[in-house]
């Protein structure tokens, strides 16, 4: 499973790096930086909540590897 952020849609709400800090950090303007795009199977529900909590629906988790 691979994490991606659609930069055109992301407006820096900060939900992803608040909810899944092992996977997202933020830059100086508050936009997310992906730390780890490959999902650890143990972190499934936490990352899914972060993905589903994006108000812009800009974060996705897709099948496949980095």
């Amino acid at each position: 499973m691979k994490l991606t952020v659609d930069r055109d849609k992301c407006s820096g709400h900060g939900r992803c790096y608040s909810l899944a800090p092992d996977y997202f950090d933020c830059d100086d303007e508050g936009y997310p930086v992906i730390l780890n795009e490959q999902l650890d199977s143990n972190d499934g529900s936490k990352v899914t909540i972060a993905v589903d909590s994006c108000p812009e629906r800009a974060v996705t988790l897709k099948e496949g590897s980095a």
């Binding site: 709400h13 939900r15 909540i49 909590s53 994006c54 108000p55």
Partner: peptide, 9 residues
């Protein structure tokens, strides 16, 4: 899961 519009979008 919570993606409210309190801060608009």
């Amino acid at each position: 899961v919570n993606r409210h519009f309190s801060f608009a979008a």
